[in-house]
Amino acid sequence: MHNKTLIDYTLHLADNALIIGHRNSEWCGHGPVLEQDIAISNIALDLIGQARNFYQYAATVSGNGATEDTLAYLRDAIDFKNILLVELPNGDWAQTILKQFFFSTYQYFLYQQLQNSKDAQLAAIAEKALKEVTYHVRWSSEWVIRLGDGTLESKNRMLRAIDEIWSYTGEMFLAASYELQGIREEYAVDLSEIQKNWVQKITSVCIEATLPLPADTWMQSGGKEGKHTEYLGFILADMQFLQRAYPDADW
């Protein structure tokens, strides 16, 4: 059914932004320095803002009483369609930075194409979000270069971060069933087209950061279809507790 696919695709975009936004918000009050604490909290807010736009649209298309809040707070892990990368634990600053860099670069090329979507609402959200994402890419790539080409300690932490995260990057370009359908109906982005740009950007930044990237390796997948790591359950427990314990709580 046409609507179901569009809803799934929109939820996938929303879930990606919400979950990494939530992860970033965990840094609030714990950043390595005050200025970066504020920077990553700003990025968290940007991403949760994007998630809201997508959820509101998904709620409109769904009808039957769905709202942005029911979609964010009352779905279970199996219904979430985010990629596994965004639910990984923050680890240290190096892992958080690298995760953000991989993801923001992905979002950047994705939103750039999504602006041409046949679905006017998706195109409009992408256009609005692209400015924010452009800054996220700039901010995170600066840090990848700083840490990679920094001290022995920072370089080792970046190398460890690459080891931890790399196998979660393949899923970004592995189209789920709703993406394939969406591509046929020309509202979803063809991921094989943006993969080349992503690899190019990641490679050039990592060369500047003097960080070697792994050769082709086995890649994790499943998140887009609702098969998640154990981490997502803990995130949802934290994030959804209030709405589930006190339904329709408001302040």
């Binding site: 320095v33 005050l34 200025e35 970066q36 504020i38 920077a39 700003n42 800054y135 700039r138 901010w139 600066e142 700083r146």
Partner: peptide, 20 residues
């Protein structure tokens, strides 16, 4: 005022701290 490792980071930190 704010802390930063170099001029570029100072401008980025200023963007995040003072132009929100």
């Amino acid at each position: 005022s704010l802390h930063a490792a170099d001029a570029q980071m100072a401008i980025e930190n200023a963007r995040d701290v003072y132009t929100r």
